[in-house]
Amino acid sequence: MTRKQKRLAVIAGGLVFLGAAAGLTFYALGQKTSYFYMPADLHAAVLQPGQRIRLGGLVEEGSIVRGQGTEVAFAVTDTQDTVKVRYAGILPDLFREGQGVVAEGSFAGDGVFVADSVLAKHDETYMPKEVAEGLKEKGVWQPE
């Protein structure tokens, strides 16, 4: 190979590599991102069975049911609609009734949302940002 051919081969190799990396990135962006919904948004949403989403809203007052074991049930509401959630795990320290929460997981066959992670606020002053914005859009935001 002449020097020019060699250089071209190196450049082509680099481009193929970058192309592969970019392709992988876009594929992963299409497959591995999870969308955020509030309960009232779910009517319009088309979900594949088992598709992972993040469900946000307020923990409905009086909805937390703790059994004998490790599983907890509660309901997430945006004051218009309510979704039941099951979760087996340690709830965050700031998980409380009437407070903002984001649950990540998917819907089980019985229409109950099975969460594998639950996030609440990081400290007492702030709500999860997406929940606060969602509530504002729905006009049910009540500043504390």
Binding site: T25, Y27, A28, L29, Q31, K32, Y35, F36, R54, E130
Partner: peptide
């Protein structure tokens, strides 16, 4: 890309998405 993508998507379309561990494990 994974870090900024949700910010860009929210800024242009309003969809709130999150890019987490599955994305980074794959790329």
């Amino acid at each position: 890309v994974g870090t900024l993508y949700p910010l860009v998507v929210e800024a242009v379309g309003g969809d709130r998405i999150s890019v987490g561990a599955p994305f980074f494990n794959l790329t």
